[in-house]
Computed example of a mutant assay.
Amino acid sequence: MLMVKAIVRPEKSSEILAELNEAGYPAVTKLDVVGRGKQRGVKVGNVVYDEIPKEMLIFVIEDECKDDVVSIIARKAKTGQAGAFGDGKIFISPVEEAYTISSGLKGL
């Protein structure tokens, strides 16, 4: 199992979630977050905004689904054809075990 964490523009999250749901990946945790990337925020005049609003989408998936999920997120999160600074990041981490609390069953 893998945990996929995607940090994306808030206006893109609905499109991403709809496409993932259609592709058979309905389970998600969504968090409102703030932060900055390599560009160190956005400078407008003399003001630097270094806490840019984003959304973090968290999924746990089977290993063989990784390429499909990453492809959907990357395609739907990209701004325009070429993309732009601030479109987001995708992180992949291994998950050793998962349990459903209500049933106690192991696995997804």
Rank of each mutant, 00 (worst) to 15 (best):
K30P: 01
K89S: 00
D68M: 15
I92P: 05
L108H: 13
C65N: 15
A77T: 05
I101T: 00
P53N: 01
L57F: 01
R9V: 00
R36Y: 00
A6T: 04
V4Q: 03
G24Q: 10
D63T: 12
K54T: 00
D87Y: 02
S103Y: 05
L2F: 11
S13C: 10
G24K: 13
I90T: 01
V4W: 03
I16D: 04
Y99N: 05
L105V: 06
K106Y: 06
G88K: 11
Y49L: 13
M3K: 14
V33M: 08
E96Q: 15
T79H: 12
D67I: 11
F91D: 04
K30F: 02
K78W: 02
R75M: 09
E51T: 03
K43A: 14
A18N: 13
D50N: 08
I92W: 07
I61T: 05
Q39E: 10
V44I: 12
V48A: 09
V33F: 05
S102L: 15
V44E: 01
G45Q: 04
S102Q: 14
M1A: 13
K30H: 03
L17G: 00
G37T: 04
I58F: 03
I52L: 14
E51C: 04
K66A: 05
V42H: 07
V28R: 09
L108S: 11
E22C: 10
Y25A: 01
Q81S: 06
Q81I: 05
F85M: 13
R9P: 05
E64S: 13
K38N: 05
K78I: 00
I61F: 07
F85K: 15
K30C: 02
Y49W: 12
A98E: 06
I90L: 08
A77P: 02
G35V: 00
F91V: 02
D63F: 15
E22I: 08
V70I: 09
A18H: 08
G83T: 00
L105F: 07
S14E: 06
L31R: 05
G37P: 03
K43F: 12
M1H: 10
G24R: 15
P10R: 15
E22W: 09
G37S: 02
P94H: 11
A84S: 10
D68V: 13
V33H: 05
A84K: 15
K30R: 11
T100P: 07
G107E: 10
D87L: 14
R75F: 06
P26N: 11
T100K: 14
S14H: 10
L31V: 05
G104S: 06
K66S: 00
R40S: 08
G104F: 06
V70M: 13
I16M: 06
M1Q: 13
F59Q: 04
V33G: 02
E19M: 12
G83S: 03
D87G: 04
E62S: 15
C65H: 14
L57G: 04
G86W: 03
R75W: 01
Q81A: 10
D50Y: 01
E55T: 09
L2G: 04
F85Y: 08
L108Y: 12
S93E: 06
K38L: 09
L57C: 03
F85S: 13
I61P: 02
L20M: 07
K89P: 04
